Amino acid sequence: LGSGDILVFLPGEREIREAADALRKSPLRRHDEILPLFARLSNAEQHKIFHPSDTKRRIVLATNVAETSLTVPGIKYVIDTGLARVKRYSARAKVEQLHVEKISQAAARQRAGRCGRVSAGVCIRLYSEEDFEQRSAFTDPEIIRSNLAAVILRMAALNLGDVAAFPFLEAPDQRYINDGFQVLLELGAVEET
């Protein structure tokens, strides 16, 4: 790679910590500044990515928050692992889980575009074009992969009518609506009527 800093997309904190440890131990990267970026870091640690170094190449290891939420000065290269940690609700188990999943084609294009950078750059995907073509076109909307109890409660408070009849852009499955009502009934937040 030529000059310029590197942004690497990894699915979560554990993968970021492991990659940071491996890079710090690598003799090829001993002159680079390795900067992890994930939610549990202190504000001071997170803000280090916004201060470019004149002497060292920076390698920023980030979750998918850097796809749309950040622009980091000095980033020239993006390395896309093609993975992200995605929250999904299981109506059967009644829990929200964070699964590592392949990102959609739209998210991959976002990563390859100007995400994280202030100027044009290079994106290196760590997966094949065939793999890219087999991915879903877009990321599933959060409304169809979340627990709907809070949405239902807010809609009831705003008198928006029947949740099942509401004109969502991407309507959630009826079983998730039923599950949301069941959770609210168990909590005593709504009545049967």
Rank of each mutant, 00 (worst) to 15 (best):
R58Q: 14
L83A: 04
H99C: 10
A66F: 01
N64T: 13
V65M: 03
Y77D: 06
T63S: 12
T63D: 11
E133L: 14
K87E: 13
D131W: 00
I103V: 14
V86P: 01
V100M: 05
Q97W: 03
V86C: 08
A62Q: 02
S136V: 09
R114V: 07
K76M: 11
A66R: 04
Q110I: 07
Q110E: 00
Y89Q: 02
A62Y: 12
Y77H: 10
S136M: 08
C115N: 12
A106M: 04
I59L: 08
S53L: 08
E129W: 03
S53G: 08
E130H: 02
P52S: 13
F138W: 14
R85I: 06
T68H: 05
R114L: 15
I75N: 08
Y127K: 01
T81C: 10
A137M: 13
L126A: 00
A137L: 14
R109I: 02
P73N: 09
A106P: 02
V65S: 03
H99I: 13
V100R: 05
A107Q: 10
N64R: 08
I75S: 11
R117S: 00
L70D: 09
Q97I: 12
L61Y: 08
P52V: 15
K102N: 08
V118W: 00
R88C: 06
I59V: 15
R117G: 06
D54P: 07
G74R: 01
S53F: 12
Q134A: 10
V86W: 04
K94A: 13
E67L: 01
T63I: 14
R109N: 13
R57V: 08
V86M: 14
D80Q: 06
D131N: 12
I59M: 10
